[in-house]
Design a protein around this nucleic acid. Structure first.
Lengths: 250, 250
DNA sequence: AGAGCAGGCGCTACAGCGTAGACTACTACA
DNA sequence: TGTAGTAGTCTACGCTGTAGCGCCTGCTCT
């Protein structure tokens, strides 16, 4: 069996291994994660497999288990890699805690828009891992934001709640934005382009009526509008809380 | 009767089929989806497979493709089934549009808490499906919320933006809440219980300092606090927009 | 120089997956 | 009675994640 298999005849496992051992540099965890990221970016998480990643690296897929204990762990690593790009400024680098949050929000949005296929992971993996077990790189932004908020005058509880509201909003916004993809740009009317003509007109009058609005989604502007509301709310919370202590400035 | 279990030789496919045809009632799409939901609830999406679902229904797995064209489509059906439980009151059933949104928010939270393993699907599947291609049951809540908001005086654009902010917030909140699971309740100190002792104290002072707060997460209350802020923001938007037209009442 | 050994490395194998397609038996109508 | 269509089942294919194994390499010790 397998006489047709050329490689196993003129190149024994031994030879193949010697070659590769000579030639290849050692594989770092970062190589692995970076390549995994490009694969996910290209074809989505669904299409990602250990075997494909192995092939992309020119290595035996089993080699990957040296750098991550399982596929899930590897995907956690990808999440960590992506989240480590999130820029959270310190309070002194920025005019205002609000400016800091705005800056971070834009950074987050950029990352998500740049890696849309990673977003399901970003959103989903934490559900499978208790907070403190998450990769440290993932917790760094959280710590930095808490620092920023505490520096701004929030007490511990307030900072945590503010963080949650803020980040929850960010995630929600990203999920909204990423599903606003128009798929048939060659169609002319909004109704057709969005596929809304499929909806029974009597049951979905509002939705159909909003075809025009749906067609002109502007993610950045909606982010800004949302931030206005969220930050206004947080500002008021901060003001309500401050009177007890000394006040820095509004 | 022992042969019932064993014999595939003394019971031909023919005989087996005649029996089952006689005995079994036809399988409805709802049966399939409902059973799928229980499986997902029990073991999570990862552990869900067509073959397992087939086994749970006592049917050939291939039968399932009669009710859904693929596994993904079937999971979309599960999402639809779950989302169809979301209660969105009409404006006249409720004192206020704000009350309507609050009610819906609680309904959504209940559903998510009841089906935590479905949440990844809820959040993830829409990313793979353009809005208008989604199952109708999934769009119903959207339509109803738009109706509610328009009835409250929002114009089309405003209603859509309000909807997005509101639902984005809801999703974000749910994602927050579901990852606040304490895993080692037998441990005594919050630091240990949450696994936070693992974090380098110097690099994560804020996070460690908030162990107590993290340990006492109250999802319902945080939802309420978030709603306060979001609804306040929407109320202001509505007020800003109204002066152009006739005013109903603040 | 030679022996021994630890560990890196690739291969094979296994159990399970989604689903295309062929086959079989039954039903409804001519 | 014949025939077309359909519903139900089984098999098979090409994937998947990953456990286990045996080989080769290079280091250490004599």
């Amino acid at each position: 069996m397998g006489e047709e298999d050329i490689a196993s005849e003129d190149r024994t496992p031994f030879e193949r291994q010697r070659r590769t051992v000579r030639r290849r540099a050692a594989l770092t965890r970062n190589d692995v994660l970076a390549t995994a990221l490009t694969l996910v970016d290209a074809d989505g998480v669904e299409a990602f497999s250990m075997r494909r990643l192995g092939k992309a690296l020119g290595r035996d897929p089993m080699r990957l288990y040296r750098h991550a204990s399982s596929k899930d762990a590897l995907l956690d690593g990808v999440v960590e890699l992506v989240m480590s790009k999130l820029a959270v400024p310190a309070l002194h680098e920025v005019v205002d805690w609000e400016a800091g949050l705005r800056y971070t929000a834009h950074s987050f949005r950029s990352i998500a828009v740049e890696h849309p296929h990673v977003v399901p992971l970003l959103v989903t993996r934490p559900l499978a891992t208790p907070l403190a077990m998450r990769p440290l790189g993932t917790l760094r932004p959280l710590e930095n934001l808490l620092e920023l908020l505490v520096g701004a005058g929030f007490d511990g509880r307030g900072a945590l709640h503010a963080y949650r509201l803020y980040f929850g909003f960010l995630f929600g916004h990203i999920l909204n934005e990423l599903q606003e993809q128009v798929h048939n740009p060659e169609e002319t009317t909004d109704l057709l382009r969005l596929g809304l003509h499929r909806l029974p007109a009597l049951e979905f009058p509002r939705l159909r009526g909003l075809a025009g609005e749906l067609a002109t989604y502007d993610g950045l502007q909606e982010l800004e509008e949302g931030l206005d509301i969220v930050l206004e709310g947080l500002r008021r919370k901060l003001a309500d809380q401050k009177p007890n202590h000394e006040v820095r400035r509004g």
